[in-house]
């Protein structure tokens, strides 16, 4: 079942800086939910196709036509931090 190390790994993958308390609570809650989900193991899915789209539609494409891009200031309007025409982010350290 899911242990503390898994929870920390998943929190890292999900970019969530969780507190000690959150990690511990999370472990218990995830364990309970995964426990419930175990019931799916009982289902015989031999040869069953997976469903990823509820409706059977294929080949939906658009023509290669240019549409005017958004107005620069409007598109930057929600930026938490910017420098001139750019979005600005703090120092990147390779994860």
């Amino acid at each position: 079942m899911i242990d503390r190390k898994d929870v920390e790994h998943v929190a890292r993958l999900g970019r969530l800086a969780l507190t000690e308390g959150e990690l511990e609570r999370m472990r218990g809650e995830l364990a309970a939910i995964l426990q419930y989900i175990e019931k799916l193991r009982a289902v015989d899915v031999e040869g069953v196709e997976p469903t990823s789209h509820a409706v059977p539609v294929v080949n939906v494409m658009r023509e290669d036509e240019v549409e005017p891009p958004g107005d620069h200031e409007t598109m930057m309007g929600n930026a938490p931090d910017r420098s001139g025409e750019f979005f600005r982010v703090p120092r990147i350290i390779e994860d």
């Binding site: 999900g14 970019r15 969530l16 800086a17 969780l18 507190t19 959150e22 982010v89 703090p90 120092r91 990147i92 350290i93 994860d95």
Partner: peptide, 14 residues
């Protein structure tokens, strides 16, 4: 805010 990008986005989401 955070010292670096990973800390910033991790804290922001948390």
């Amino acid at each position: 805010p955070g010292r670096d990008l990973i800390e910033m986005s991790g804290r922001t989401r948390a």
